[in-house]
Design a protein around this nucleic acid. Structure first.
Length: 274
DNA sequence: AGTACGCCCTGGCCGC
DNA sequence: TGCGGCCAGGGCGTAC
């Protein structure tokens, strides 16, 4: 489940392999993966012959800025992968490969997605932010403690707030659990009830956990792979996620796993008091 | 405004 | 061995 650290890991590799490359054509094997477009043919026509000038990330979305001022956007959903396929070492597409981007040197990027929750689409650069409707980038300098305080002025549960992409971009189920444990905050606490110390710890934990996970090249619990097909390593360092019943890393209490509106939520009832 | 839930989808796992 | 049923959940839509 690619969240900010996984998508950032892919972005860093993409920068070195697709920047300056010309897209000769796009093969769409599963049309529904191309969304928000009139049809996949429109996307194929607008991308053909275009050069990738920059690769950015916004939240969990990957943005390829093209020399036509269009932006090619990939959202990986739960099980989406972008895989680099070099002409010297050609990667075979399989039944889960839904789109192939072909470059003029013979290289290809395969867009695989087992559960098909991902999508790709094209948007004019000027309409990017309006289309994405995403909140603060948690690793930018502009994401200050004051910015977090402003966002937190809401009675929603803090776990929901962290996962709300319109408030903070890029945090999903795994990292919200890990961040809240690190900050010592109960996931069900209303965001607006957090005191100054808690907000400060939360702000610190957001940066620390996301950076730590990026350093691990992301979290491969199941399907996530880097651009070159490698697994990440953050799964070995989970504090609470998928550790229900196991002992807390800070105290003797067992980690609790509960359902929160259909999603699993893990925390230490002793370190994270309600 | 906040909350819950169903939907999309596949593979893995469990119980019989 | 095989098969039905359930679970995982990001984002969106809908209902209360």
């Amino acid at each position: 489940m690619p969240e900010l650290p996984e998508v950032e890991t892919i972005r860093r590799s993409l920068v070195s392999v697709v920047t300056g490359k010309c897209i000769t054509h796009v093969t769409v094997l599963l049309p529904k993966m191309v969304r928000r477009q009139g049809s996949q043919h429109e996307l194929m026509a607008r991308v053909r012959g275009r050069t990738v000038t920059r690769v950015r990330r916004r939240g969990k979305s990957l943005l390829w800025i093209l020399d036509s001022s269009d932006v090619l956007i990939f959202r990986l959903g739960m099980t989406g992968q972008l895989l680099w396929s070099d002409p010297d070492c050609l990667l075979d597409e399989d039944k889960h490969t839904h789109v192939i981007i072909h470059f003029d040197g013979g290289e290809r990027i395969l867009f695989r997605d087992i559960r098909q929750f991902g999508e790709m689409y094209l948007v004019e650069e000027g309409l990017l932010e309006k289309t994405l409707q995403m909140g603060a980038e948690p690793l930018r300098k502009s994401f200050t403690l004051e910015a977090l305080e402003k966002i937190s002025a809401s009675s929603v549960k803090i776990k929901h707030l962290l996962m709300d992409q319109r408030k903070i971009a890029g945090i999903g189920n795994i990292y919200s659990d890990e961040i809240l444990f690190e900050a010592g905050i109960h996931p069900f606490k209303p965001a607006s009830s957090l005191n100054g110390g808690e907000l400060q710890r939360l702000h610190q934990a957001i940066g620390a956990i996301l950076r730590e996970a990026i350093a691990c090249k992301g979290d491969t619990l199941s399907d996530y792979r880097t651009l070159f097909g490698e697994k990440g390593a953050y799964q070995h360092f989970h504090r609470v996620y998928q550790r229900g019943g196991e002992t807390c890393r800070k105290c003797p209490a067992p980690i609790v796993r509960v359902k929160l509106s259909g999603r699993s939520c893990h925390f230490c009832p002793s370190c994270q008091k309600e």
